[in-house]
Amino acid sequence: MSLLYSPFMINALIGIILGGITAMITGALSTLRNVHYLSAEVTHSALGGAAIGALIYSQIEYEPIIFITATTFSIISSIITGYIVRERGVEATGLAIGVVLAISLSTYSIVIGTLKAELIIKVNSYLLSDILLITYSDLMGMTLISFIGLIVLIAFYKELIYVCFDMEGAEALGLKTKIYDYMAFALIGATGAVLARAMGALLIYALAILPAASSIELSNSTSKIFIYTFTISLIAGLAGILISLTLNLPTSGTIAATATTIYILIKMAKKII
């Protein structure tokens, strides 16, 4: 019981809530925009940013810089993907993701060799993280991005849905779609970076894509897709922590496995019903 009140557990629980918010934004938006894998792939590019951040950190010793550069890299990568998708169509998503990953991962490979061991661990936590190891400094950055993401989503909800639903029609009707489309891509990148810090980029497939895919199966309105994605992510997070503590398993991996199980159960239930 005392474990539940330990600082790292409280940080992890806050991380789960923030993870739910960011999974909702990045997962649901990328699903609605028909670039399903973007949320997961673009967060891999946070690695390159984290590596550059670690390089700067070794000079100025300002801890948040790693989170800042990782998030910036993720946003820029998402926007570059958005540009290529807009220019060449949604079928060019694979090519776009390939371009941004190549840039980011080559940056990571070059920089990582120059870093000290402790900084390499910090950078690699963006690839395979453990939610129980989230620091106070990480939480501050995650809270800020989640809060801004949520405000932007609520403020421009109609516009974001319109560009996802019918870009050409919305533009012809008078909406300045370019702004809102890039806003959607920036949101996917920013909130994806937060999720990468909480879960590690490798597990984002489970926590961003699957809850959103499950929600589409269950929803009869666009707002419900967001609400269900948040709820499924939160349930997967809380259940994952509980199972991992009970069975002494790695927490983030267990959360990802729980989210996958929920998705499979929903698919099976839909088939039966």
């Binding site: 609605l32 019918d166 029609g169 009707l173 309105s221 666009t222 419900k224 897709i225």
Partner: peptide, 16 residues
């Protein structure tokens, strides 16, 4: 103006 695009440009799977 009013405009109706070709329907294949609309993301029909979105439950709007």
């Amino acid at each position: 103006m009013g405009y109706i695009p070709q329907r294949d440009r609309v993301m029909e799977g979105i439950p709007m």
